[in-house]
Design a protein around this nucleic acid. Sequence first.
DNA 1: AATTAGATGTTCT
DNA 2: GAACATCTAATTA
Length: 205
Amino acid sequence: MDVEKWSILKESFYQRSDVEQIAKELLGKILVTNFDGRLTAGRITETEAYSGRNDKACHANNGRRTARTEVMYRSGGRAYIYLCYGIHHLFNVVTNQHDQADAVLIRALEPLVGIDSMMDRRGMTKMGYPLTAGPGSLSQALGLNYNMTGTSLLEDKTMWVAEDGFTIEKEEIIKTTRIGVGYAGADALLLRRYYLKNSPWISKK
DNA sequence: AATTAGATGTTCT
DNA sequence: GAACATCTAATTA
């Protein structure tokens, strides 16, 4: 892995208005974190798109503003990390322009760099898919915590997304329903989850 | 192999 | 006080 050759994604990537397109394009990109001297990175294999408009599954649906969702209204290129079920820290990328509350949840990735650190953080002694397959798992492996919500992804300091020229064919992308959003009624049926067909590093069985 | 249940704590009603 | 963008271990079959 030649970390030096990766290039960080810029504002122009995040601040577009089509969150479904961005979620799709994030597949194959690399999520990198660097906390207290431990560099960890993984290739994104599964994402979900959440839109601030007409999507009941989104925390910021139709202008819903709370202390928690405020980050989603900021301009694209920041992290939205929140605590789920009191245990898991779920990592999202905020997209779109200021006041357009869209985000992409990163659900799974294939570990590339710092696997020993990831296993250490997860308390695992044996390598296996549970390391980073699933939104709560990958956040723990990369050391992401909900108190880091709002952090900019536009500087390569603590957390960012990079690309290395790896490409994904259209046929490799499965598009289906999102996980755990039954409370959203009809919007639970929207096809806004994307994952790589041939990757074992995905959240479902 | 498949399903269930417990853990855990912030957020919002 | 209920709900919650989950994970794991234990239980059932």
